[in-house]
Nucleic acid binder design. Structure first.
Lengths: 108, 108
DNA sequence: TATATTTGCAACCAAATAGTAGCAAGTAAG
DNA sequence: CTTACTTGCTACTATTTGGTTGCAAATATA
């Protein structure tokens, strides 16, 4: 088993997905984030550490506080992976489009 | 920590993503799948078990063989989750569109 | 019937993960 | 300067995960 540290690992945990949802809107400190969960500040800090290692978050130091915000670029990687499969569930729609296209050409 | 068994857990492992990639095209047996990897058949079977529990794959029994194929519906869940964030990386593009739109109106 | 193939399941092991507690460093406020 | 606050880091523990081995059940083939 190798150590995996990528965006797919980052979004596997529901707490981390919740953190992503929060810092997508505004930058937040670990203390602020911890207040939104039932778990301890240290636990949230460890989740943040994973997100930082996966480059899912950007950090900005302001005095003794550290603000974390979502880095959207890594989210694109998931989108690009999904792209390969998207055609599979859009197939029916594409087929419908083909039908419409054929109807158009018939009119000519 | 609770036991998580959802699509995000399913796609966290690179081997499982590879399996998904293979069974998206054609249905395959565990034996066929194992031939594509360096790991044992049992290891692949355990990955398949996870995918089944997450309802990412459909199975069809044919004699003593079991064919597994991708169930695309669960993949949509990831796409729906991403949908909330997609606007964030399309923002710049939208702004560019706005610029182009303004140029158009200026011409009038 | 006897044998080989395909598969799932249970037991077990090593590594990773999630969480807690304590501590040190840096910063703000008295 | 002293005290309080915010944070990251290092053990330490419990749980989960990925993998291997062995075995039994079901199916195909001789």
């Amino acid at each position: 088993m190798e150590t995996r540290r990528d965006i797919f690992q980052a979004i596997a945990d529901p707490t981390r997905r919740a953190i992503i949802g929060l810092i997508a809107i505004t930058a937040m400190t670990p203390g602020d984030l911890a207040a939104h969960f039932n778990t301890s500040r240290q636990a949230i800090s460890k989740h943040i550490k994973v997100l930082v290692e996966c480059e899912v978050v950007k950090q900005e130091v302001s005095g003794r506080e550290i603000f974390y915000q979502l880095d959207i670029n890594k989210m694109k990687e998931v989108d690009e992976w999904l792209e390969k499969y998207r055609c599979l569930w859009e197939k029916r729609f594409d087929q419908l489009e083909n039908v419409l296209e054929k109807l158009k050409t018939k009119k000519k």
